[in-house]
Design a protein around this nucleic acid. Structure first.
Length: 106
DNA sequence: CTCTTGACCATGT
DNA sequence: AACATGGCCAAGA
């Protein structure tokens, strides 16, 4: 009995440690298929559990907030990340080389 | 019930 | 190296 893709996505997203960011592809890869990135975006789009699912920690693989981010605005996301301890670059993108979650809690 | 779109990423030309 | 298309899963019309 395998859980639905959504369940896995939420599980992985919630497992993202504070102070780090994960990319859609990373989540999708951990879920099982790196091509499921679209479903990951859709899963967060519905966001059935706001507050439980840190959508602000999920960015594209370039470190930029995804298009159409409709939970407060891209600036709001940067504020959240800074509050988490993730400092964004001057370009507004996140340094995935340092803050990019490896899929393991340190 | 079938087709299209969707917070994306990877591969092919 | 850059542009275009494919692919996966799910939900809306």
């Amino acid at each position: 009995m395998e859980k639905n893709v959504f369940e896995r996505i939420y599980d992985v997203v919630e497992h993202v440690p504070r102070g780090k960011v994960a990319t859609y592809g990373q989540i999708a890869a951990l879920v099982g298929n790196p091509r499921l990135a679209r479903v990951v975006g859709y899963a967060l789009h519905v966001n059935p559990r706001p507050g439980t699912i840190p959508c602000h920690r999920i960015v594209t693989r370039f470190g930029f907030p995804a298009s159409g981010f409709a939970f407060g605005g891209p600036d709001c996301q940067r504020q959240m990340l800074e509050a988490e301890g993730v400092l964004a670059e001057k370009d507004g993108h996140i340094d995935l080389t340092k803050y990019g979650w490896n899929g393991k809690d340190e």
